[in-house]
Amino acid sequence: MKLYDYVLSPSCYKVRLMAALIGVTLDIRPVDFHPGCEHRGPELMALNPAGSIPILEDGDLVLTESSAMLVYLAAKAAPQWLGNDTAGRAARVQQWLSFSHRLTASLGAARLHEMLLRPGNIAALREQGTAALRELEAGLVEQHVRGQRFLASDRPTIADIACFPYVALAPDGGVSLDPYPAIRLWSRAVRSLEGFIEMPGIHRLHELTPAPVLEVGEA
């Protein structure tokens, strides 16, 4: 499976993270998104006329939406991540997958504006991003009341992976995460998952490893 990938793209990171969590190996093809704008070049436009990344290729299947890629990876290698065991849960997963596009359009665009100098109405993007974070916070509070730590269930699903990256990176676009305790706990639960990988802007949870000691004589 080949992923057209950019290290600083939260959408590409969703796919890398999902693959890491379920033990799927991806063949990474780095795309010079910035400063080269390679995603708008002829080779990638031929694959994805929308001019966006990620793009996932598996045989003659070509996917250009990260949510579809999460479904594909989970269905192939770890179906429990689909969270579709009841009608209600399946719908809840879809609800958050659709919601995740609002995160891309608001927090993601604010981040591109603030970090990589892309045009945009930053005040409006931040306002939309804040509204989305409040919805997510309220949703997580209700999940806690139901005794569930993740968005659609008490175990993580593709819904969590679809929402996590742009939320965790909101401060990159100047949107503070300080007011959201439920998001903080959820984000920590995602970051503590076995097999979790970081991307630039999301630091390692150093508390998960004990303070290491240097053996005498080791340099």
């Binding site: 290290v7 600083l8 780095p30 400063p35 970090m115 990159d172 630039p200 802007g201 630091h203």
Partner: peptide, 14 residues
């Protein structure tokens, strides 16, 4: 090479 250096610098940014 570009991505390696961007990774490092964006880790510093926050």
């Amino acid at each position: 090479l570009i991505h390696f250096q961007q990774t490092i610098f964006v880790q510093d940014r926050s």
